[in-house]
Structure formats: C-alpha cells, structure tokens
C-alpha cells in the first residue's frame, strides 16, 4: 500500500504539472469554442465566464497571483456582468439573428484557420530567449521559505517606470465610463 502511494506521489511529481496544464487548457479551449458556436447568445455568455475563470487558473499556474485575482474581479465579476446585461436588454431578436449560420461559419473558418496555422507555426518554430528553468524556479523561495508573490514588484513598477501610463489609463477609464453612461441613456440623438 505504502509502496503504491509512493509510486503515485512520484508520478504526480513528474506528470502533475502536465496533467494540470492540459486539464485547464482543455477547459479554456472547450468553453471558448462553445462560446463561439453556441446557438443561443446567453449560453455563449456563460460559457465565456468558464473560459475567463480557466484563464485565471492559467495565470495562477504561471506564478502571477495578482493577475489571477484581477482576472476574476474584472472579467468574471465586471465584464461578464456587462455582457449579460447587454444580452438581457437586447434579447428580442428574431431567431435567425441569434443563430450562427453555416455560411458565416465557413467564412470565419477561412480567416481563422490560416491565422491559427501561422501563429502555431511561429510559436512552435521560434527559439525564444527562455531563462533557465532552474534559475526561474529558485528565485521565489529565497525570502524565508514563503513565496513573496508578484504583487509588490508590480506595484513598484506601476508607480515608478510606468507611472505616466498608469495615470493616463485612469483618465482614459473616466472618459470612457462617462461617455458610455451618456450614450446608453439615449442622449446621442
């Protein structure tokens, strides 16, 4: 029994990251594909929510804790609510516009498949300047056994090197939200 358990733990150590990655990647791709082809737009919206959650898991697996939380708050909590509101407020369409037609799917595949082929070829064929895995893995546990995370480093960068884009983004968000509120109230006429 203990022998079997030991073997299982060793297998988890070897294959665990791969199993985790392929599981999450499968979830992300399957829910994204269903969001694209679903007949009803509300099914599509909820499938997109699963996709965003899977992307948050990907960020966590990449060691980017702050971004994983931001993804859940902004996408799953904010943008998804906006999209669901959009669906609910405009869902009085005739059936033929809600469905996705064979003709447009063929047109879409004619664009998407060559793009996918080119991107996969470029991603798999280029030798990226990857830092040695040992150095990258050894860096975090240096601070007394606990992983310090990336939040402090991101905060420092945002308030030093990227201060101007950071402040500019806040102005941009303000302008966009005021403009959106103005437009949505029907004042554009």
């Amino acid at each position: 029994m203990a022998e079997l358990l030991g073997k299982l733990t060793a297998a988890m150590g070897t294959y665990g990251p791969a199993v985790l990655f392929y599981g999450v990647a499968g979830l992300v791709l399957a829910s994204a594909a269903y969001a694209v082809v679903a007949k009803k737009i509300d099914h599509s919206a909820f499938s997109l929510m699963a996709c965003f959650t899977g992307v948050a898991a990907l960020y966590a697996m990449l060691g980017s804790d702050f971004l994983a939380v931001t993804q859940v708050i902004v996408y799953v909590g904010g943008i998804m609510i906006l999209i669901v509101f959009g669906v609910l407020l405009t869902d009085r369409l005739p059936v033929e516009y809600r469905q996705i037609s064979r003709e447009t799917v063929v047109q879409g595949l004619a664009v998407a498949v060559p793009v996918m082929a080119a991107l996969v070829w470029a991603a798999a064929g280029t030798s990226w300047p990857v830092v040695a895995e040992a150095a990258a893995a050894a860096a975090p546990p240096a601070a007394g056994g606990t992983d310090p995370g990336t939040t402090a480093a991101i905060g420092k960068l945002l308030l030093t090197d990227y201060l101007f884009p950071f402040e500019f983004a806040s102005v941009l968000l303000l302008v966009a939200l005021v403009g959106a509120a103005r437009m949505a109230r029907g004042g554009a006429k």
Binding site: L29, V36, V105, G108, A112
Partner: peptide, 8 residues
C-alpha cells in the same frame, strides 16, 4: 477562436 467569433 476569437477571430472565428468576430467573423461568424
């Protein structure tokens, strides 16, 4: 997949 959704 995103491009497919935008076109289709």
């Amino acid at each position: 997949l995103g491009i497919l959704a935008m076109v289709a």
